[in-house]
Design a binder for these strands. Structure first.
Length: 421
RNA sequence: GGCAGAUUGCCCGAGCGGCCAAUGGGAGCGGACUGUAAAUCCGUCGCGAAAGCUACAGUGGUUCGAACCCACUAUCUGCCA
């Protein structure tokens, strides 16, 4: 069995771990868990980093438990938040739980001796009565120590914290205890912001079960330009293809900064140290080819959305950004490319819509005035031909293959208009 | 609970009766330059083709005229209980 710690080590994926962890791993097999709270209808990049980390453990023979936080999602983790968050309704959270469970499944192997286990902390918390909670669990927590946790102390000095969120670390600790009892789980992993919650859990298991369990955190992914990783102008990049299209997802990785691409490859792909060294060399020698970004985008999009969607996203990118003449693209390629871009339908019915109206229709600009402005600034093209007249209109002849009109705003924002008869 | 102050566009922040759709900065967007990059420079940045319309926490008022004055409401921040 390969050593998971050295694997994570060369990838710079270890922020902190409990001192006893190497000893535990030396025994061979561990069962580990990571929690995913339903704070949104879909998982996002931060979650993906943990999923991939768990996957690395599973590939080396360890047993992963993917825990969906049906209970903790109802409470709200104060970690990394500078203000109390609004509670989501129970119905909403339970709906998200189901969606997130389905999203997690494809990443893991559910067969073999180290098959992945899916769990949900709602199971052991929803009917626990308050006296049991206070006597059996709460008794093991020192408020003094809870106040010392970064996630709590930051809030005490700032916007304050409710009892609900203050209790979050207790619930997460209870999860570790339950998973230890039910599945012999002896390791919890998470982002470095979870360190406080994880150690609260190892403390609880030690007190209640007199057992040594461990924690490991991965560094938060940061970007060289200081902006938040996992966000674009249009918001969070989600794993759900309904929320972030595979095309947009692919583009997100393709656009990675040279300075960040190695870190991202180490964190999100399974490429070997040798392959990454080769890509690093490629970036240094021929940065404009962006080989590393292409490898990154290919691997991660395939991991999340599969081969087919990745091929489509690539074809779309090649079609839109390629040097080739758009009119020479075959109908099928164009069709799949345009479906991936923001698009809208229009029926001509004898009238000729203006280009700026069409820009608004596929949400490339916020208003007609902004569209006209964009044209005046020389930033708009139709079928890769620059539009110079603010009042330009289109006719049926402009639609490629009688169906699609390719709108471009700026260098890399595309939209499609499909003609309906 | 009492007193004082604050609330301006995506964010910060000027304006304190007409010259205000509102200075300046940031973010965003477009162009040049590029590699679907970074940095830099230039332009732009409520809606509307325009007339004009809607906006300066909310509601009402004073005034020929209010982001600016008054009253009340809401929220926030100080000081005193």
């Amino acid at each position: 069995m390969n050593d998971i710690l050295s694997e994570l080590g060369w990838r710079n994926l270890v922020a902190q771990h409990t001192p006893e962890l190497p000893e535990e791993l030396a025994k061979g097999h561990v069962t580990l868990y990571c929690g995913f709270d339903p704070t949104a209808p879909s998982l996002h990049m931060g979650n993906l980093a943990q999923i991939v980390t768990m996957s690395r453990f599973q590939q080396l023979g360890h047993t992963p438990i993917a825990l969906v936080g049906g209970a903790t999602g109802l409470i709200g983790d104060p970690s990394g938040k500078n203000a109390e968050r609004t509670l989501n309704t129970t119905d909403t959270v339970l709906e998200w739980v189901e969606g997130i469970r389905k999203q997690l499944e494809p990443f893991f192997d559910f067969s073999g001796s180290n098959a992945c286990i899916m769990s949900n902390n709602y199971i052991w918390t929803h009917d626990m009565d308050v006296l049991t909670y206070l006597r059996d669990i709460g008794k093991h927590f020192s408020v003094n120590r809870m106040l010392d946790k970064e996630s709590v102390s930051a809030r005490l000095n700032g916007a304050g914290i409710s009892y609900t969120e203050f209790s979050y670390q207790i619930l997460q600790s209870l999860d570790f205890l339950e998973l230890y009892r039910r599945h012999g789980c002896t390791l919890q992993i998470g982002g470095s912001d979870q360190w406080g919650n994880i150690t609260a859990g190892t403390d609880l298991v030690r007190r209640v079960e007199s057992a040594q369990v461990n924690g490991l955190t991965t560094p938060l992914v940061t970007k060289a330009d200081g902006t938040k990783f996992g966000k674009t102008e249009s918001g969070t990049v989600w794993l759900d293809p309904e929320l972030t299209s595979p095309y947009a997802f692919y583009q997100f990785w393709i656009n990675a900064d040279d300075r960040d691409v190695q870190t991202l490859l180490r964190t999100f792909t399974f490429r070997t140290q040798e392959e990454l060294a080769a890509l690093e060399l490629a970036t240094a020698e021929k940065p404009q080819a962006r080989e590393a970004q292409r490898a990154l985008a290919h691997d991660v999009t395939t991991l999340v959305h599969g081969d087919h969607a990745t091929a489509q996203a690539k074809a779309a990118a090649a079609a839109l950004f390629g040097q080739g003449e758009l009119r020479e693209l075959d109908a099928t390629t164009l069709d799949s490319a345009m479906r991936e871009a923001p698009n809208a339908e229009v029926s001509l019915n004898g009238n000729a819509p203006t280009v700026s109206e069409l820009l608004v229709a596929c949400e490339l600009v916020a208003s007609n005035g902004a569209g006209r402005r964009a044209i005046a600034e020389g930033g708009v093209s139709v079928n890769n031909v620059k539009v110079t007249d603010e009042n330009a209109t289109v006719s049926a002849d402009d639609f490629l293959h009688g169906k699609w009109l390719v709108l471009r705003r700026g260098k890399r924002t595309f939209g499609g208009i499909s003609l309906i008869k």
